[in-house]
């Protein structure tokens, strides 16, 4: 199981990377941490002409304050997010989600930007970014632009990124003082991709949940914002009746496809279970 032959370039600057993308077009593939790309190369599911390794681009790395929020470089590795005190303080949802990503050896190489750009529907970061209302920072020779995470994911493994663009950073707005977050995931084994997962964020004031964001992973082609369920709980105390109402509404938000081991009905059921658990936790 050996990858087919490809070329390899390691640009020293973004400009150089843009030039490579321009020259090779669809034949070029960006290499970030490689933890999803390299297996697909080894299995010959992908056969690019050229890998453009972003590994030398220091400007894509690091976690920094952005006002009261955060800017996380695209090449920041999962393990760095997991360990960051700044992330734990300003975007605890990410810190909660990180340990669910595969295993340590993978987290030591896999990157935030790589995960977002791949847009695996069962991955953790896309759902978290949507839940947090993050902005995805995209650069190209044409300049830089920002896209809300909610708009970034288009379809299965498809994003807003054009062939000549590079995801350079994620900007996360400051958390509200009353913000709470919960990340829950059901996977058959530790570190496996989620059967169903939920990134949940809300502000709790006077025992009520406001600005609730419920974003599911593993139940659709992209991270799914459960608007009906969110509306059902908005401004309410998370009591049994309100939770049940939100769970009920989920069938309007989710139309999951079954996978190898889990049917669509089971996924919807499990999403309801996670919703109940998440809302109870947010309200605690």
């Amino acid at each position: 199981m050996k990858a087919s032959s490809f070329g390899y370039a390691r640009p020293a600057s973004l400009a150089e990377a843009f030039a490579l993308l321009a020259r090779h077009g669809e034949g070029a593939k960006l290499l970030a941490g490689g933890q999803s790309l390299i297996p697909s190369l080894n299995m010959r599911l992908a056969a690019p002409e050229l890998l453009v390794d972003l590994g030398a681009l220091g400007e894509l790395e690091g976690i920094a304050p952005l006002g009261q929020g955060l800017r996380i470089g695209a090449r920041t590795r999962h393990c760095e997010i997991e360990r960051s005190a700044l992330v734990a303080e300003r975007a605890p949802l990410l810190a909660q989600a990180a340990p669910h990503i595969a295993h340590v050896a993978i987290r030591n190489r896999g990157t935030l930007g790589g995960s977002l750009a791949l847009a695996d529907p069962a991955a953790e970061w896309p759902a978290c970014c949507v839940a947090l209302g993050a902005q995805i920072v995209i650069a190209s020779a044409r300049g830089e632009r920002r896209v809300a995470a909610e708009q970034f994911f288009k379809a299965l493994y498809a994003t807003e990124l054009a062939a000549d663009e590079i995801l350079v950073a994620v900007e996360i707005p400051p958390p509200a003082p009353q913000a709470r977050s919960v990340f829950l995931e059901l996977a058959r084994r530790r570190g496996d991709y989620a059967m169903v997962g939920l990134a949940a964020q809300a502000n709790r004031t006077d025992g009520q949940l406001r600005d609730v964001r419920l974003v599911f992973l593993g139940v659709g082609a992209i991270p799914v914002l459960a608007r009906h369920a969110m509306a059902a709980i908005e401004g309410k105390a998370a009591d049994a009746a309100a939770i049940a109402a939100a769970q009920h509404e989920l069938s309007k938000d989710l139309s999951p496809n079954g996978d190898l081991y889990t049917s669509a009905e089971a996924k919807l059921h499990l999403a309801r279970v996670l919703t109940g658990r998440a809302l109870a936790a947010l309200a605690r």
């Binding site: 059901l186 058959r188 059967m195 081991y261 889990t262 049917s263 009905e265 089971a266 059921h269 499990l270």
Partner: peptide
Amino acid sequence: FTPERILRALGRI
């Protein structure tokens, strides 16, 4: 005995 099979046995789905 997958979660799917157990949920079906329980009548949860």
